[in-house]
Each structure stands twice: as structure tokens, then as C-alpha cells.
Amino acid sequence: MDFSNHHGRIQAEIEDERGQTNSKLQGTAALKQLEAILPKLEVEKTTAKKDAIARTMSAFKLADNYREFELEIRFPDGDKITFKSNK
């Protein structure tokens, strides 16, 4: 998932590589789906890695059987946090 909002210019993309069929949404279709998910994410600069991963998995309704996980968030003030995990 990639979502950016630069001064009101919004770009969204979702690529799902799980299962046997890969899917990719861009633009309005991706944005519509993300508008329902992103408010549930609730990850802030001070969120612990374990909590950020759990909240992301819950918001996106993902199973806990991932091999690799990466979450990068850039905040409006320019700060960036990255959470990575391998199983």
C-alpha cells in the first residue's frame, strides 16, 4: 500500500501479492478502499514496534503468517518512522 498527500494532491496504490491472484488498485479505487482503513491504523511517532505491527495487521485484516513486514510512515512535519520484522 502506498498513500501520499502532498498539499492536497493525493496518490494511492494498493498491491496485494497474497494468494494465487495478485491484485493492484490505483487512483480513486485505491483511495476509496484506504479511506476506510487508514483511520483505524492509529500509529504515531511514539507507537512501539510491536503495537504498530499489530495495529497494521488489524486495520488491513491481515493474517499473522507473514514472512516479511515493513511499515514506513512520513508525518506532515517531515519525520519518518519505519518498522520492519521478519519471521
Rank of each mutant, 00 (worst) to 15 (best):
I37D: 05
K50Q: 12
T56N: 05
D64K: 15
L71T: 03
K40L: 07
I37H: 02
E42Y: 07
F69A: 03
L34P: 01
Q33H: 00
K32W: 00
A63S: 14
A59Q: 08
Q20T: 13
F75C: 07
A52F: 01
E13T: 06
A36V: 01
T82P: 03
E13D: 08
N65K: 11
F60Y: 13
N5Q: 02
G78L: 13
R9V: 13
K87Q: 14
R74V: 14
E68Q: 12
N86W: 04
D2Q: 08
P76C: 03
R18S: 11
S4Q: 10
A54W: 03
K32M: 04
E13Q: 09
R55N: 14
K49D: 10
A12M: 01
N86K: 15
A48D: 15
K80F: 02
S23G: 05
T82E: 12
E35P: 00
K24I: 04
F83M: 08
Q20Y: 08
L62Q: 15
T28M: 07
E42I: 05
R18Y: 11
S85M: 10
R74H: 08
N5K: 02
L25Q: 06
S85F: 05
D16R: 09
T28F: 10
G8K: 11
A36I: 00
F3D: 01
E42L: 12
P76E: 08
P76S: 05
R67K: 15
E17S: 12
A36G: 09
F75L: 05
R55S: 10
D64T: 14
Y66L: 04
L34G: 01
M1I: 08
T47H: 03
K32E: 13
K40Q: 11
E15I: 03
L38Q: 05
Q26F: 04
F69N: 02
N65D: 15
K84T: 10
E17Q: 14
S58E: 15
D16C: 08
Q26G: 11
A63P: 11
E44K: 13
E70P: 06
N5A: 00
Q20N: 14
K61F: 03
A30W: 00
I14L: 09
S4W: 02
E68F: 12
K61T: 14
Q26V: 09
F3H: 05
E70D: 12
S23W: 06
E70F: 09
I81F: 02
D51H: 06
A48N: 13
K50I: 06
Q11C: 00
R74M: 08
D16Y: 03
M57P: 09
I10C: 08
P39N: 07
T46Y: 07
S85T: 11
T28W: 08
K49N: 13
K45L: 14
L41A: 04
R55W: 04
V43G: 01
L25A: 02
E44A: 14
Q26C: 02
D16I: 09
A30Q: 02
